Computed example of a mutant assay.
Amino acid sequence: MAFSKHVLVFLVFFGIFNISCNAQGLKLGFYKKTCPSVEKVVKRETARIMAAAPTLAAPLLRMHFHDCFVRGCDGSVLLNSTRNNPAEKDAIPNQSLRGFDSIDRVKSAVEKECPGVVSCADILALVARDSVLLLNGPFWPVPLGRRDGRVSNGTESLIELPPPFFNITQLKTNFASKGLSTKDLVVLSGSHTIGTSHCTAFSNRLYNFTGRGDSDPSLDSNYVARLKSKCRPGDQTTLAEMDPGSFKTFDKNYYTLVAKRRGLFTSDSALLADSETRAYVIKQAASDGKTFLKDFAKSMVKMGKIEVLTGNQGEIRKTCAFVN
């Protein structure tokens, strides 16, 4: 047992060491000479996309998160499956992702400006930032220089991505394995202030929490009743707002809901089960939200550096859905 603990500590340390070493290849202004207009082009195209479909902001942010948690921020979530290899995007946790065509659109615009220079991984990181910004969220500087991976394995998504039913211990372990702290966990959970979810992601909390046809006692009873009126048993199509009344604005209201025991997922409610995450939730619920926006920007920069490929690693894909 002692040996196993030492191995675990070493692996976590080694993972964090790897993250920091590879991240040294990222820098602001990476394309200053090779594609100086990249951020301008991405911002322009993202604004056009959001003007036509503002609800895409949450899926595009989520796509960046899902990319970084599997093989690092290498654009592997964008690759299509092949006959012999089911890719990440077709794994169950990613089947509800939307916006792949939007990333392709931005990539095409960047390719016209600077052919073969900017990676899909960098474009995804920039689009996620600009999407949040367009919903009154924070700006954060995005260090660039990521290279695109050549491997995408759907099974890895099932293993690496934290599902909505994780408890606080599982969440902390999952984030720590990516070099992210408990504070990063509670801060990044705040991304649930925008977007929607299919009823299937939380219906067990309403109708069969312990297998006895009961509801999750950690959920506010009035909120349970409201969700039941929206999501009938077996409903696989209806969407519920993760931050009712404010799901199109990036703000601190998520924490207000969680503090009232109205977090949509088990993983949201789990934030009240840990002293550090609970304290942050309570603090932000009572705040003007400015601290959250600053914290979110910092945690996103940190997340965007997870296990990146830099230098001569990987490649610069011509199209995001296929390796060269």
Rank of each mutant, 00 (worst) to 15 (best):
S119K: 03
K248R: 11
K298N: 11
D122P: 09
S191K: 11
D243N: 15
M1F: 04
Y280F: 15
I92Q: 10
F202M: 07
L188I: 13
G116Y: 11
T196A: 04
V151C: 04
E45I: 10
F165T: 02
I282L: 11
K172A: 06
V7L: 15
N22K: 15
V118Y: 02
T196Y: 13
R226V: 02
C120M: 04
D90H: 10
Y254K: 00
T249Q: 08
F292S: 03
L309W: 13
L133N: 11
R232V: 06
R83C: 07
Y31T: 05
R83D: 06
H66I: 00
G99E: 03
R98K: 15
V70F: 08
E307A: 15
E156I: 13
K252M: 11
S181P: 10
N94T: 00
F139W: 15
E45F: 01
N80G: 03
D251H: 06
E156M: 13
F100H: 11
S269G: 13
N18D: 08
I316P: 04
D214F: 12
H64R: 14
D235I: 02
V142P: 14
L126H: 04
S119E: 05
S4L: 15
K290P: 12
T46V: 09
A201I: 01
I123H: 02
L79V: 00
S203Q: 14
R278D: 10
S20W: 14
F3W: 09
T319Q: 11
T291N: 09
T237S: 12
S275Q: 11
P217L: 01
F165N: 14
P244S: 01
R146K: 12
H198Y: 15
D288L: 02
C35E: 04
R129I: 00
E156S: 15
V258L: 04
D122M: 05
L60G: 02
S267R: 09
K230P: 10
D67T: 01
G195C: 09
L144F: 04
G29P: 13
N208F: 14
K283V: 01
